[in-house]
């Protein structure tokens, strides 16, 4: 096994609020190996985005703070880096694509200038050379007529084009790790497919690792090698993609998979997990998913299950995970 590009150990990111401290990320540990794509899935409010922003150290403080843990990027704990060293990493060896392509580009600068800025900052190229490289990057992400497009402003580009620009910007300095936070959520399905294709191609060409934050399990199936499932600021399951889709060990993962509409089945009503994500300010005893879990029993409400190895490469935070590993196929259980 290769050394991980990113290793998060027991990360706790808390936010101060009127109702006390909100534990948005509460003891998350994960790793992303070189060249690998890790999917991070969960509902809104599960702590996925806060985890990714924590890795970039883009959590505003106050109200946020890193209460505990380590984030090792290429072996260095970035939570201990000073601001200048952190700026050297961002957009360089560590970069991120954000959720909202429509608002994530500065409206008053040309897209070429915005890509060139990162290149000038990190590779210390003069402006003309950086701009030429920005045009190359636009070509790399399949933008037609890149020489002309580089001189255009964000409002002159469509949503899909803007997300390509964001990708071009993120990749302009050959990152070792790309964090993509819901990169296709705001786009329509055909554009989604194009962007995912593009990311797959570039991953192969540039050999970077990707941490893909999404709530869309279809994207996970297409893109990822391994998955971590987050719920209530914690990881509830970790597995390779095939095992997870084959036999989800945590009831929450099972519910997420069951919620995917299937083209080969005609159903009256789509499946949905009852209830909603727990209030992150409320921390009572027991498994956070217990109130919504169809399998929950006494122990789940009084004791919090910890994420522990169940099988080779598989971890789950559920008391039933062991017996679920050897049960019959999911469809039978659910029907």
């Amino acid at each position: 096994m290769s050394t991980p590009v990113l290793e998060i150990r027991n990360l706790k990111t808390y936010f101060a609020s009127d109702r006390g401290e909100v534990r948005a990320v509460d003891g998350v540990s994960l790793h992303v190996d070189a060249g690998e794509t890790l999917g991070v899935v969960g509902e809104s409010g599960s702590g996925k985005s806060v985890t990714s922003l924590s890795v970039m150290r883009l959590i505003a403080s106050p109200p946020g703070r890193y209460a505990d843990g380590e984030i090792l990027f290429e072996g260095r704990d970035i939570l201990k880096l000073d601001k200048a060293a952190m700026r050297d990493l961002r957009g360089n060896r560590l970069s991120m694509i954000f959720q909202e392509p429509m608002t994530s580009l500065n409206p008053v600068f040309t897209v070429g200038a915005q890509i060139a800025e990162a290149i000038m900052l990190h590779q210390h190229l003069p402006r003309p050379a950086a701009f030429a490289r920005a045009i190359d990057m636009l070509r790399l992400v399949n933008i037609p007529a890149p020489e002309r497009r580089a001189h255009e402003f964000p409002h002159q580009l469509s949503g899909g084009m803007r997300q390509r620009v964001m990708i071009a910007m993120a990749l302009s300095c050959n990152p070792k790790l790309l964090i993509a936070d819901e990169p296709t959520t705001a786009l329509d399905v055909t554009i989604q497919a194009q962007i995912l294709d593009l990311m797959r191609r570039l991953r192969a060409e540039l050999g970077m690792a990707i941490m893909l934050i999404t709530h869309d399990l279809g994207i996970v199936a297409e893109m990822c090698d391994r998955v971590v499932v987050m719920y209530g600021g914690r990881i509830v399951e970790e597995a390779d993609v095939i095992s997870l889709f084959d036999n989800p060990l945590h009831p929450y993962s099972e519910g997420l998979l069951a919620s995917i509409p299937r083209i080969d089945e005609d159903v009256e009503q789509l499946y949905a997990i009852e209830g909603s994500v727990p209030d992150p300010a409320d921390r009572s005893e027991g498994c956070a998913f217990a109130p919504r879990c169809r399998y929950a029993f006494e122990r789940c409400r009084s004791e919090t299950p910890v994420l522990s190895p169940i099988a080779d490469g598989r971890k789950a935070a559920c008391f039933l995970a062991g017996e679920r590993l050897t049960r019959p196929a999911v469809e039978q259980v659910l029907s």
Partner: peptide, 9 residues
Amino acid sequence: YIRTARGKG
């Protein structure tokens, strides 16, 4: 877009 700029370093 300010977050993007911070993300660029």
